[in-house]
Design a protein around this nucleic acid. Sequence first.
DNA 1: AAGTGGTCTAGACCACTTT
DNA 2: AAGTGGTCTAGACCACTTA
Lengths: 246, 246
Amino acid sequence: MDDRWHALKPDEGQSTPLYLQLAQKLATAINAGWWRADEALPSERTVSEELGISRVTARKAFDVLIEQGLVRRRHGSGTFITPRTEQPMSRLTGFTELLRQRGFEPSSVWLERTIAVPTHEEVIKLGLSPSAQVVRLKRQRLADGVVMAIEQSTLPASYLPDPNAIGSSLYAHLDQLGHSVVRALQHIRAVNASEEIAALSGIRAGEALLLITRLGYTADNVLIELTDTWCRNDYYDFVAELKRWV
Amino acid sequence: MDDRWHALKPDEGQSTPLYLQLAQKLATAINAGWWRADEALPSERTVSEELGISRVTARKAFDVLIEQGLVRRRHGSGTFITPRTEQPMSRLTGFTELLRQRGFEPSSVWLERTIAVPTHEEVIKLGLSPSAQVVRLKRQRLADGVVMAIEQSTLPASYLPDPNAIGSSLYAHLDQLGHSVVRALQHIRAVNASEEIAALSGIRAGEALLLITRLGYTADNVLIELTDTWCRNDYYDFVAELKRWV
DNA sequence: AAGTGGTCTAGACCACTTT
DNA sequence: AAGTGGTCTAGACCACTTA
């Protein structure tokens, strides 16, 4: 550990809060495998003393990791790495990031990338003027060369003027344009694969698929992303961690 | 407001933390309609001064309300009541509560309620001794008389000695026995309905269903519930709210 | 300019687990 | 007994919104 503390030290010049910087660095360290599953992180006191910050601040960084599901606290005992198999994905990540974390090599094949006239439903949901246009994106999503999902997104053209400029990650592109999606509501249903989806994803028509409908919001609470993702159930397993409020 | 402060005052004798007491009382007040949608709560400073607690503690209570989705903070402006229509339901609720909230009348039909010998898989997951027994529960779940889901649960018999004593809500029964499930991991997949499940749920074999596998933990972090729920996709729609960690 | 949330500190005591 | 997380305080300064 000893030589690693400096990698966790906050950057003075930064404007981002200390606890977020620390949370970020700790998350990176965890994903890099500094600790094994079920191993304990250094204690809150140790971290705060070693980095020269207050315990409250160190603890707040730990809080972030806990909400992300990366670690769990055990009273009187320590803060422990959550085994990867138990990590819920209640964390908003694009497909690309998600798979990288799990050790796959993600890729995409574009099926459609056009500017079009929105449907009536899209006009209402996205709050568009009737004359506005939308960008329509359709992709095969691959992991290590195998099709895992078919994804179709619709965004207002005003937020994404040039659909051909998108690289492999829609979210990274939106970040660059200053229209990051920071919050999303996902509706998850089960559907039978249509002929079209089946052909695109390499399964038989009628097989059960997870259909995830995502509504993505910017920091200003504006809905800018409507995405349907048809996920092969043999590769995709959605995990949610729930807490109870008594 | 003035006369209401005393209703928010923490009880001295209580052992529950101040911030939780306050969060609880505030949640009750919000649900009782003390404030209208989009109206601001008293400021953190006002609350802390009025109740004689530190601002940090008051703020921590607010944090709880935010995680519950009851209020939202706006920097420099205040803390505002979230309109009911925008409140996500990504919290752990049993089937019964869930449907009541949506205005349905839930009911169940028991298909099986026995004490049995666990399978090998159950022994491992629940950490049982080979000679231990389990309770096996199987129910049709109805809303307004229509089958919405088939549910099969397994629990260690040591935690639930008399399966016939369960009323309509497993969670309420466990609460009474002092073995509340406070945290759960849900794995969500899509599957094609088997002949058996189809017959029980009134659909055709092969139709897509959501299969939710729930691992329920007590406050002591002991796994005591394994539940498979096959949900009709035309009635069940799982919603998750995701946040992004930059 | 005043009021709000957002961050941070240095220290304290309690409750719990481990040795 | 020592170490850990859990709670709480009193005060400070910053960033943002509103008037």
